[in-house]
Design a protein around this nucleic acid. Structure first.
Lengths: 193, 193
DNA sequence: ATTTTATTAGAATATATATTCTAATAAAGC
DNA sequence: GCTTTATTAGAATATATATTCTAATAAAAT
């Protein structure tokens, strides 16, 4: 019952994502989002409690998109493949990659998150920690901080470093970044044994 | 002639740097800067044309501090020492490091820079490019893009990656990040020859 | 057909903060 | 001592944008 909707929540998230990726988080005003969709600002607030909530939703969607395939690969026990997931995902999703890797989460959506969003964010962090832990245990038979730190460096930090320069330039990372990541991975993870 | 000054330009830059490093760029309001110094807002504007100009000055000071020692080391021809400059500088200057590595330049001070500041920024970029170029030529006898990209990855991008995690946690990077950087450096730069 | 209500519609409001403006001060030079 | 002017002082203004509010709509349920 009630009037049928012209605009969906998803449209507003799409619009916010597009604006944020193209022009940065500061350009994501409610008026801009509404304008992009062709809706009145009231309709944005009808779907979302606040700008912050909308942007939190954007961030959660993007990081989930990244993390899903990443965790799957890592859970298969293939650390190198997981490391190479970053450049692959960045090439496949250039707009999302800009958003996720160029800006801090706090620049997109600040501290005041609703409880359900906070919980989703916590789960994302937890899932990542957990996957890394499992991977390390599977690798070396036991868990220690030193091995975990090496793995995080080789599988997360280095791929990020290899890719961020090209994101800043607005280009897709060339094939050679995969080589850098591979070489670094085998050097760093070799010390493991 | 004229009344003698109670407050110096430097005090305002110091205050802005402190607030930005501690609470992020958004917390650097003119009122906050003035309050930190104990001055009226008018005195801030007496020294600086705008908030943006003040923050540009902050950014230039911090990046110059980083880059001076970095370039000196690289000009000596020691790439590994240059790569290790990043963790060392971060340990010595935690507040400056937060500011420089945690936030994008555009988040601190947006596009509308005065000509003299723009020129200073351009010089910083140019000096870095130039030093990398010289280093590559000295290494391999000639210059090619591939060698330059490898050097940038090993000397700039990887040290950044190794250190940023600890900056986010508000901790000093432990000694082992130096090991990661060393190992990566020798792997990546070995392919050079 | 009437009622109900989710939704559209966009004008009005609230708020934060950069910037401007006017006046008062105080040191230096004469 | 008087004049000049760089500087302090902080109140007033401008602006951008998030948020709220009131009214109009339209589809579904009865």
């Amino acid at each position: 019952m009630g009037r049928t909707a012209y605009y969906t929540s998803e449209q507003f998230v799409d619009a916010a994502l597009k604006i944020a990726a193209l022009q940065g988080p500061a350009a994501v005003t409610i008026a801009a989002v509404a304008g992009e969709v062709g809706a009145p600002v009231g309709s944005v607030y009808h779907r979302y409690l606040s700008r912050n909530t909308l942007l939190a939703e954007v961030w959660l969607r993007v990081i989930s998109s990244f993390q899903e395939a990443f965790l799957q690969t890592l859970d298969n026990g293939d650390g190198l493949a997981a490391a190479l997931h970053t450049p692959r995902w960045v090439r496949l999703h250039p707009a999302e990659a800009r958003l996720l890797l160029l800006y801090r989460r706090e620049e997109l959506a600040d501290g005041s998150w609703a409880d359900d969003l906070k919980e989703k964010a916590r789960r994302i962090t937890r899932d990542l920690d957990c996957a890394v832990r499992n991977y390390v245990v599977r690798m070396s038979g036991k868990y220690d901080q030193e091995s975990a730190d090496r793995a995080v460096f080789a599988i997360i930090d280095v791929p990020y470093a290899a890719v961020i320069r090209y994101i800043r330039l607005g280009r897709k990372p060339p094939k050679k970044v995969d080589d850098y990541i591979r070489q670094t991975y085998s050097t760093i993870m070799r010390k493991e044994k």
